[in-house]
Structures are given as structure tokens and as C-alpha cells.
Design a protein around this nucleic acid. Structure first.
Length: 945
RNA sequence: GCGCUUGUGGCGAAAUUGGUAGACGCGCCAGACUUAGGAUCUGGUGUCGCAAGACGUGUAGGUUCGAGUCCUAUCAGGCGCACCA
């Protein structure tokens, strides 16, 4: 009987939808398993064949877990806020909500065809007010919290206020923007506004004046992970540093927990390492230096406290506040000129052009160990945002300091025995310390490091610095707070209004604060964000309602925040919302949170390593502190699927003609390669008629064929419209079926590897399904029998069960597909028609090719869905019986093993062993004295001299 | 520069974890059937060689009776971080 995939798949799709097969509820009688894909941004281009790769992999796992008796949550939704919809709106005037809605419908249509077991009743969209209600709510909780290091968690800001009232800042051990020193009396004497300003220093969501990445072309601020090589990740526009007041999230407060958490989760080493890099923990020392002829002191941060005797100059970041304090009148003009020049350089220029620049401040610092005067310089190679924005420079042992010293002719003092610093610095942290201090030099308390290893020297210096109150041991992190404002329209509005210049949260009970309508999506004339165009964007505190801007002068009406939240706001906690998506009273009910806990398997691209995957972990930890999330890590196991690249095809036009020559003959002509749409190429053979119709200019194209065919060239490139190599899954599904697409995508290679899409191999998978289908038919009739199967068929089946189960557990689906092919080939040869084999076979296949499996399942007489069948168990007795493993020993030690068929005679085994004896060098002089062979047991061939 | 990762036929890739390298699929070759098709089926297909055989997992060493797998060095590609003191 013919395998009609279109009919089968349409029927099963309908049945699953009608029966609600994929609806999931929290059930205490079953263990839960939560599978999640990174939800897609619904772009206008629709899905290409690369998008479903991860969805298929996770769907196989979800279906497998369900067959194993788990209650599996496998939801899907849309990351619907984003820049493309807004830019499209600016160009066309179409409201982003309209295009987004349209794109979502298209995505859904495409996804439905591939047979995913998503529970669509739990769908979320980040732009849905019912959803962003809780994004806004979480922001308000962050505003109302501070991070206490003693408790190791976030706490309500009211606790902090109590502390300030009682003791001021004394004894506070909290995350803060800057270190404040207040007494309780000072705090109590402050006005309401002043107090609010102080609290801003501690809130987890705070309004901060910071240097931000400003992208003039996009008209918005960007987060660090949205800037790549000094240009915006989206669009590639230049980014400049600008001081602006922005909402920020105090992610840095969680740096240590984000780092520690990595040890508890099952993610790939490379992505964990990327996050460790991004967090950038660095243990060092803060040391105080006083300034010569002045009572000013300043602090530097160093990881190489041991190099204190090699400090020959100090460097301040140009943005450092110390610059103004330390610059001497004589140097003021030079310093001002330098600051001016530095300010003009963009981030990109700084990266591209790393020439050494700097200026002397005129001031001298005092080395606290020797009393030596050290010149203080200013240079942009020191960053204001890291450490204290000031360093002690040790040119002998730091390459950047070295370059600076060489450029400005500053002294270089080597501190490590045998280190040659005539050409370059010696940066390695190894060797024996010398010159510390130099011979005959007086030091504080006779302090010396000479003769120690670097490691010992660092430790001794640290201890000395602490003991003498010259500074303290300090841990610094590279991780910065996340800038949370975007000057855009299409994002979550902040639930914030401003009164007397201070931000206030609108009451929780009034959430969600809906995104207003605007007359245009561009910034206003005065340069305000697009929300500045809204006519109704003011908050009336009397009625707790949004009102017209014209009422702002009234006493109770205040302007609302004009920025919106960034993309990662909505994607940071969506996995929690899936657990309880329709809850109007809370982000998530505690029963749902307690049952589903966290995501057991998360599948998505590794490009989110320093963005979404950090923010989400931060967000979850905060919600965990609040008691909302029941797990302090959101994603237990992470699998990164590789990208599917495009496989472009080329035709070769002979120069200045409309004649095209086939690949094999192109050497004989002068040709230009031209991208051709891969959809009119099959097996690298061009459909010449389709090509003539593809574009008007090829209507009269001539072809030089080889063997009657036109063969195209090919190359692996990014899958994109402009390369004409985009393969739409719809076409594959139509031609071969969703089951074939699913199998083939898995067959293509290891899930985490990037690989090119190559339509050429897909026939093999299609043929396999046809063979499988015919296994269940005799001619046109469905024919399976209840007779006992042959033993060899059982062996085939159980081998397959073992292999497929192991493969799914290990996510190596690419080797399961061949296992199926081999098994079906064997069963075909064995003429197996037995239900006892064919029924479990269908179940094994169900995660991979659900439509055909379900169809066969029903034809075998089942009325329930195969999704609720039971995963077969491997019975080892069928595996061992067909072979004997023989260990070859000599001198009592097993040296190697040989496998024999179960029916091999002792004589055959002995012959083989003899052959082994003769061919292997090491058996020289040995003889087989005994072969012990019992089918199903390990036996030995014993060799003796 | 630092960190992670990958190198196996014409192509995508396997290899029970130290034990017959190249399973399976694509492609290619030959044959069968044929209503000539980009269908289906059967057999073959690492390289050199008429053959016996030899050589083969980026390169060079090492450990081992035995290495794609372990160790050392080195080369090449991919990814991440990058003036973070």
C-alpha cells in the first residue's frame, strides 16, 4: 500500500487538535518533566528549515518522556516585542501590533504542520497586556528591593529604611551604586526627596546616571550584550558613550550567585565558560595611595599586589573624578585638551585604533611601602567603570603598562628573577621575586618579598596591606548592571510616573499599564522617545487612571515614563508564566510553581549566552528570593542546537551572453557564477524550465548541458533571502511530509553542531518511512499477525530499543535514525509480521515520526493515542544470545576479546583464535591450549607458552 | 593575547569509550524491471596495486601486544571574551 503522507498527516493533525492530546495539567500522580524551547521572535520572513531544528529535538525528548510515564509540559509562545516590527512600522505606518499579529499567525500555521506536541492553551506573548502585567509587576518588586550580602538575598526596601533610621549606613553590607557614609541623624534630617535619592543607591531597579551605549541611528540606548565590536548588534550602526539617566537593574549584586550557580546546572562547558568570562570574577587588592604635598588619597585595584615595588607611574581613567582634583594648574591646559580629544573618540575608534595616548596630571602619588614619589598620568586605556578607575602601573609585568612606559619614556623595573623585559613585559604569574625592594632600600616595617614565588608574594602583600589598614582584599566583577531603558515604542511601558523629578510606581492593583497609542513611532521633535508622541500619557493619582497630557498641570496628574523596557524584560521569566499562564492574581500560583519547579530541558541557540541566559538567571534568582519561583536556577539542563546554514546553488553564465554552462563544462568558458533559487534545483540538477520562468531576463536562456542535465555548483553560506538558499519547511512537508522532515533534520548530524541544509539526502529518510509503512501491509491490506515472532526479530527489536533509548537520553538522535533503518531492513528480510514486534516498533518511532506512528497505532486497533502508550523496555536476554564474547588471555590476564555468533562451534572459535595467535606479534611463542565456549557467556581462550 | 571547541572517504557522518576504522544516508558505478522516470529493486564503492598485499582518522613524536580514541608538541578551522589592571 502506498505511503500517503499528506493524507495521514492531515488526519492525525486534526485528531490531535480535536482530542486536545497535548493539553497538560499539573497531576500529582505523575512525575513532572518540563521541556522548553527558546521562544521565537515572529519575524516577517516566516520560518525557514533551520528554525525547527531545536523544536524537533526537544519534541522528541518531550514525547519520549511522556511515553515513559512523565507528565510533560512542552509549551510555546512568542517573544513579540522587538525592533524589526517597530522599524517596519516607521517605514509603512502599519501598527507593530498588526504586523506582529500577522507574523504570529503565519508562524503558527507553519509550526502546526510539523507535528509538535506543544500545549497551545498555554501560549504566551510578551506584548499581551495579561503577560506584561507581570513583567511590570516584577520591575516594581525590583524597585522595592535591595540586595543584602549578609542575608545573601534581596530584601524589601522597608528593611533598609529601618536600618538607616536606626544606625545610618553603619554595618550595612549591601549592593550599592556608591559607598555612602550617613549617620541615623543625618538620614532622619533629610527631606522626603533626599531620602528617595539615597534609596536609589540601593534599589535593584534604579534610575542611574551612567555611561551608556547610545546608538544615534536607532535613537536608543543599548545593553552591553547588544553592542558588538562597537556597533549595534541589530543594524550595525555606530554606538557612542553618553552620560544619561536610565533605568538600570542591579545584576551585579547577583554576580557571585550567578557564578556559583553554574556549578549546579547541566550546561555545556563552553557556555558556562562564556558566562564565567562575562561575569569576570577577579580577586585582588584595593590599595590606598596618598598624593604628595596634599591630603588627597585615592584607591586603586590590583590583582598583582606583589608588584608594588615595580610601580613607576599611576594612571587615572579620563572620566575619573580624581582627574579634576589632582591636575596641577601647570598641566591643566594639556589635560583639558586630552580629555576633549578622548571624549570625541567612539567606542569603535578606541577598539580599532589602539595607539598609546595619555597626559601627565602634574601630581605625584606616594608609594606607601617605600615613600617614593610616583607620577600620576591620565590615559584612556584605564576604564572608569572597572575597579576604581585608577591603577598602579607596573610596566615590567603588564603589557599595557609596558607599552605606555615605552611610549612616554618611563622607567621599567623588573621584579622577577631571569625575566627579560628589554623587548616586552613579563606577564606570567610565575617565577621568583627580586628587587622587592631593591638592595639597600628602606621599606615600611622592613617589608620584603624577595625570594618568594609570585603566589606567596601576592598573599603576603595582601595580608600586610590589611594588617596595616592600607587597603583591603577585594573581589571585583566585570559584570555590569543592565541598562533597562530603551527609547522605543514597541516594548513594555514602565509603570512609572514622575513627581518632583522623582519616579513613583503606579499601584500594583492598577497594573497592567497599557502601551498607549501614538501618532507616529519616531522620536519627538524635542528628541524624546516615541511615547512622547502619545496624547494620553499622564497618571492621575486621584483616580489612578491614565489621562490626557493636557491635564498635567493639575495637582494630581503627573507625566509617565517615556522609555520602554528592553527585549530581555519579557523573555526573562516567560518559562514561569507557562506554568500558570492564565492566572490573573499572580505571576504564577504557588501550587503551579511547586509542581513544575523549573525547566528540566531547555533548548536554544548559544548566541544568548551573555544576554538572555544571564538575565533570565538573574531574574529567576530575584523571584526566588521573593518566594515566587521555587527554584534558584531556571534551566536545569541546556542543549544548544547548532545553526542550519544554507546550501546555495550557482549557475554559470558565459560572459556577455544569456547562455549557461553546466558545472562540469564551465572550465572551457569564461563564466560568472550566479546564485540560483535552490527551490528550482533538485540534487544539484537545475529545472531549466523553472529557471526560465524564475525571472524575466532568463526567459530566453540557453543551456549547455552535460549528459542531458544542467548541474549546478554549490557553496555553504548563511541561510538568507539574498543568497536564494532559504528552504521553507512548508515545501518539504508538502513533498515528503513532516515525519520525513523531522527524521531528516535529526539525521543531518549531531544536534549541537552547525551544519548546512542539504535537500539531497532527504530521499533516504523518505524511502525509510515507505519501507516501514510496507512492513505493516501485505499488498494493499493491513496485515499483522498475533503469532509469536521469530527470535531473530525479537533480537532486532530489543537491539533497537536499547540503542534508541540510549540515544534519546544522550541527545544523539542522528545515530538513532540509522538504527531504525537497519532494524526495518532486518525485519523486512525476516518477513516479520508479528504484532509483538511491530507494535513496540511503532512506539519507538512515535517521538521521531509521530504522524505515521499514530496512524499505524490506530490501524493496529488502538483507540487511544500512541502518545499515551508505554515505552518498551529492553530485555537483555535477546541481545546476548546471538553472540559470544571471548576473552583471550595469556599469563592469566585478559588481553583482548572476540565476538562470535552464538552458533559458532568451539572449533570455529579455536580457528579464529589461532589466526589471532599467528598474526599478533605478541603471541609469539604462545599456543592455544583450551577454548571454553558456552553460548551467552563470556568464555576464554587460554594461551600458554 | 586568554578561554572553549572541532579536525575521519567525493559529501553529511558512525565507531559499544583502548580492540575488525568508515555503520547508516547521499552521491557515484554496474545490473534487473520498465509504460524511459528525478520511480522501484539488487550488487559494488577509503587510497595505491593485475594480484598477493601495502597504506590510511590534520602533522610529528610517545605510552601500549593493540591508538580515531590516552599523553606531549605542532598546524588549521569555528565560537566566546578582549586595554577588566
Amino acid at each position: 500500500m502506498e505511503y500517503n503522507h499528506q493524507e495521514i498527516e492531515a488526519r492525525q493533525r486534526k485528531a490531535w487538535a480535536a482530542q486536545g492530546t497535548y493539553r497538560v495539567t499539573a497531576r500529582e500522580d505523575k512525575p513532572k518533566y518540563y521541556v522548553l524551547n527558546m521562544f521565537p521572535y515572529p519575524s516577517g520572513a516566516g520560518l525557514h528549515v533551520g528554525h525547527p531544528l531545536g523544536y524537533i529535538a526537544s519534541d522528541i525528548y518531550a514525547r519520549y518522556k511522556r511515553l515513559q510515564g512523565y507528565n510533560v509540559l512542552n509549551p510555546m509562545g512568542y517573544d513579540a516585542y522587538g525592533l524589526p516590527a517597530e522599524q517596519y512600522a516607521i517605514q509603512t505606518g502599519q501598527h507593530p501590533a498588526v504586523t506582529t499579529e500577522k507574523n504570529i499567525a503565519r508562524y503558527r500555521e507553519q509550526l502546526d504542520k510539523i507535528g509538535f506536541s506543544f500545549d497551545w492553551s498555554r501560549e504566551v506573548r510578551t506584548c499581551d497586556p495579561q503577560y506584561y502585567h507581570w513583567t511590570q509587576w516584577t520591575f516594581e518588586q525590583m524597585f522595592g528591593s535591595y540586595y543584602c550580602y549578609d542575608a545573601g538575598k534581596a530584601k524589601p526596601i522597608a528593611d533598609l529604611v529601618r536600618h538607616l533610621e536606626a544606625q545610618g549606613t553603619a554595618g550595612l553590607h549591601v549592593a550599592e551604586s556608591e559607598s555612602l557614609d550617613l549617620t541615623a541623624e543625618q538620614w532622619r534630617a533629610m527631606s522626603e526627596t533626599e531620602q528617595q535619592q539615597v534609596l536609589m543607591n540601593y534599589r535593584l531597579a534604579y534610575l542611574g546616571e551612567t555611561m551608556v551605549n547610545w546608538c544615534p541611528k536607532l535613537g536608543t540606548v543599548l545593553a552591553n550584550d547588544e553592542v558588538v565590536d562597537g556597533v549595534s548588534e541589530r543594524g550595525g550602526y555606530p554606538v557612542v558613550q553618553k552620560r544619561m539617566k536610565q533605568w538600570c537593574l542591579r545584576v551585579s549584586a547577583y554576580a557571585q550567585r550567578l557564578l556559583d550557580g553554574l556549578d549546579t546546572i547541566d550546561w555545556s562547558d563552553s557556555i558556562k565558560e562564556t558566562q564565567r568570562n562575562w561575569i569576570g570574577r577577579s580577586e585582588g587588592t584595593e590599595m590606598q595611595f596618598s598624593v604628595k604635598d596634599s591630603d588627597v588619597k585615592f584607591t586603586i585595584f590590583t590583582t598583582r599586589a606583589d608588584t608594588i615595588f615595580g610601580v613607576t607611574f599611576m594612571v587615572l581613567a579620563p572620566e575619573s573624578e580624581l582627574v579634576a582634583t589632582l591636575t596641577t594648574p601647570e598641566q591643566k591646559a594639556a589635560v583639558d585638551a586630552y580629555l576633549e580629544a578622548t571624549k570625541k573618540r567612539t567606542e569603535r575608534e578606541r577598539i580599532a585604533d589602539r595607539r598609546v595616548t595619555g597626559v601627565f596630571s602634574g601630581a605625584y602619588a606616594v608609594n606607601p611601602f617605600t615613600g617614593d614619589a610616583i607620577p600620576v598620568w591620565i590615559s584612556d586605556y584605564v576604564l572608569s567603570g572597572y575597579g576604581t578607575g585608577a591603577i598602579m602601573a607596573v610596566p615590567a609585568h603588564d603589557s599595557r603598562d609596558y607599552a605606555f612606559a615605552k611610549h612616554f619614556g618611563l622607567p621599567i623595573i623588573p621584579l622577577v628573577e631571569g625575566a627579560d623585559v628589554s623587548e616586552q613585559s613579563f606577564d606570567a604569574k610565575e617565577g621568583i621575586v627580586m628587587n622587592s625592594p631593591a638592595a639597600g632600600k628602606q621599606t615600611l616595617d622592613g617589608f620584603t618579598l624577595n625570594g618568594l614565588t609570585i603566589k606567596e608574594a601576592i598573599a603576603r602583600t595582601k595580608a600586610f596591606v590589611e594588617a596595616h589598614h592600607m587597603g583591603r582584599v577585594k573581589v571585583n566583577y566585570r559584570l555590569r548592571d543592565a541598562i533597562f531603558s530603551r527609547q522605543r515604542y514597541w516594548g513594555e511601558p514602565f509603570p512609572v510616573y514622575y513627581k518632583d523629578g522623582m519616579p513613583h510606581m503606579i499601584p500594583e492593583t492598577c497594573l497592567p499599564l497599557l502601551l498607549p497609542e501614538v501618532s507616529k513611532f519616531l522620536p519627538t521633535e524635542s528628541g524624546e522617545p516615541p511615547l512622547g508622541n502619545a496624547e494620553c500619557w499622564a497618571w492621575d493619582t486621584k483616580t489612578n487612571k491614565v489621562v490626557s497630557n493636557t491635564l498635567i498641570d493639575h495637582q494630581s496628574v503627573f507625566p509617565l515614563e517615556l522609555s520602554t523596557m528592553p527585549g530581555f524584560a519579557g523573555s526573562s521569566a516567560y518559562y514561569l508564566r507557562y506554568m500558570d499562564p492564565h492566572n490573573d492574581a499572580a505571576l504564577i500560583g504557588s501550587d503551579a510553581a511547586a509542581y513544575w519547579q523549573s525547566v528540566d530541558l531547555y533548548v536554544g541557540g548559544s548566541e544568548h549566552a551573555t544576554g538572555h541566559l544571564i538575565y533570565s538567571r538573574f531574574w529567576d534568582k530575584f523571584l526566588y528570593d521573593l518566594g515566587v519561583s521555587h527554584s534558584d536556577e531556571p534551566f536545569r539542563k541546556l542543549v544548544n542546537q547548532g545553526m542550519i546554514q544554507g546550501r546555495s546553488n550557482f549557475v554559470y553564465r558565459i560572459k556577455d551572453t544569456n547562455t549557461f554552462v553546466s558545472l562540469g563544462l564551465k572550465q572551457q568558458y569564461d563564466t560568472t557564477p550566479i546564485h540560483v533559487d535552490v527551490n528550482i534545483v533538485s540534487g544539484d540538477v537545475l529545472d531549466v524550465e523553472a529557471f526560465r520562468q524564475w525571472r524575466p531576463e532568463y526567459k530566453d536562456a540557453e543551456f549547455i548541458l552535460e549528459d542531458g542535465k544542467y548541474v549546478c555548483g554549490w557553496a555553504v553560506e548563511k541561510m538568507s533571502k539574498s543568497m536564494y538558499n532559504v528552504v521553507n519547511p512548508d515545501l518539504i512537508v508538502e513533498k515528503y511530509g513532516a515525519d520525513t522532515l523531522r527524521l531528516y533534520e535529526m539525521f543531518l548530524g549531531p544536534i549541537s553542531q552547525s551544519k548546512p541544509w542539504d535537500s539531497n539526502g532527504i530521499d533516504g529518510c523518505y524511502r525509510f518511512l515507505k519501507k516501514l509503512w510496507n512492513l505493516y501491509f501485505s499488498g494493499d491490506t493491513f496485515a499483522i499477525s498475533d503469532d509469536a515472532p521469530k527470535k531473530e526479530s525479537l533480537t532486532t527489536l530489543h537491539k533497537l530499543i536499547k540503542k534508541v533509548t540510549e540515544d534519546i537520553e544522550a541527545f544523539s538522535y542522528n545515530t538513532s535514525v540509522p538504527a531504525f533503518m537497519i532494524a526495518v531492513g532486518e525485519l523486512q528480510q525476516q518477513k516479520c509480521v508479528s504484532r509483538a514486534v511491530l507494535e513496540p516498533l511503532a512506539v519507538l518511532l512515535a517521538p521521531f515520526a509521530p504522524h505515521i506512528a499514530e496512524e499505524l497505532w490506530h490501524r493496529m486497533g488502538h483507540t487511544d493515542s500512541i502518545c499515551d502508550a508505554q515505552w518498551p523496555k529492553c530485555d537483555e536476554q535477546y541481545l546476548v544470545a546471538d553472540s559470544v564474547t571471548v576473552g583471550v588471555q595469556f599469563n592469566g590476564k585478559t588481553r583482548f576479546t572476540l565476538d562470535f555468533p552464538a552458533d559458532a562451534t568451539a572449533q570455529q572459535m579455536q580457528d579464529i583464535a589461532l589466526a589471532a595467535e599467528q598474526t599478533a606479534k605478541y603471541t609469539e611463542g604462545f599456543k592455544v591450549v583450551k577454548v571454553i565456549a558456552v553460548p551467552g557467556r563470556i568464555v576464554n581462550i587460554v594461551l600458554k607458552k
